[in-house]
Simulated assay, not measured.
Amino acid sequence: MTASIADVVERTVDVGPIQARVLIAGTGDPVLFLHGAGGLVWNPLLEALAAGHTVHAVEHPGARSSDALSHLPGLWELVLFYDELLDVLGLDTVEVVGHSFGGMVAAELAANNPKRVRRLVLIAPIGFWRDDAPVPDIAGVPASSLPGLLLADPDGPLAATLVPPADDPQALFEASMRMASILHFIWPIPDKGLRRRIHRIAAPTLLLWGAQDRLVSPVYAEEFTARLRESRLVLVEGAGHLPQLERPAEVRDHVLGFLDTMEV
């Protein structure tokens, strides 16, 4: 039985001077979920995870208030924030699932504290840079162009959910805050030295990539698989940068199958 949104508990957790918003649901081994630039949304993947795990889905600092970012001047401080958050939550070891920017942070967390992360799932993570496949500067991408970058089918029903209504000032403000909280850590390019640390990751890792990802090309999967000690790569056909939304059943099966098996 999956957890519905009605079963999700929202907590505000103090991590030093920063208040972290955490959505918690389910029972079983703990899973930490780190979201991408689209923000923290309770989606079908989290519901599926909560059927057999205790999910802790965290909103990145700064997504609602820029005050938190004054305490986190760079990526290193953000990684330490998440390490401390796990201490506050009483989670000595966890399985971590991260998407896009959240995947980058998840990889850094696992590299910083290898014994803390038992298994790692990275969904279209950023963190590297290739001149032959540059990651577009999302700060300069018009909202109307986002579906074409993020989705395999930019004319499908998901497209409308990616762009806040032009006549909704609050939605536009919230979207700009979420974007600013990500850009704070990755501007001007997302390569912040992960290639120097990724060899420290000890956790078996599942990489999931949309085969039609036009934001972060699937060629970046090579950068991860070449450097990770133990990894499995799955290319999801018919999906772009949001495979967990475009192909939810396929992604669910791969993630649950990976987390619930003893061997990679």
Rank of each mutant, 00 (worst) to 15 (best):
A48G: 06
A25D: 04
S66H: 11
V41T: 15
S70L: 15
E77Y: 14
D67T: 15
A37T: 12
E77R: 10
V31E: 07
L69Y: 12
P61D: 01
A68G: 07
P44H: 04
G62Q: 08
V31Y: 06
L32F: 11
P44C: 01
L23Q: 13
W76L: 14
H60L: 14
G52W: 02
P61K: 02
L75Y: 07
L32P: 00
H60I: 11
L69S: 04
A57V: 01
F33L: 09
L75H: 11
L45T: 11
P30S: 07
L32E: 02
H53L: 02
G52F: 01
D83P: 07
A48M: 08
G74K: 11
F33S: 13
T54Y: 05
G74H: 10
R64T: 15
H35M: 11
W76V: 15
G28K: 07
N43P: 04
L78Q: 03
V22E: 00
Y82F: 14
L78E: 02
L40C: 06
S65P: 05
G38W: 00
L72S: 01
L69C: 12
L40P: 00
W42H: 02
L34D: 06
L49F: 03
W76S: 15
V22K: 00
P44D: 03
W76Y: 14
A57T: 02
L45A: 10
L46P: 00
L23W: 09
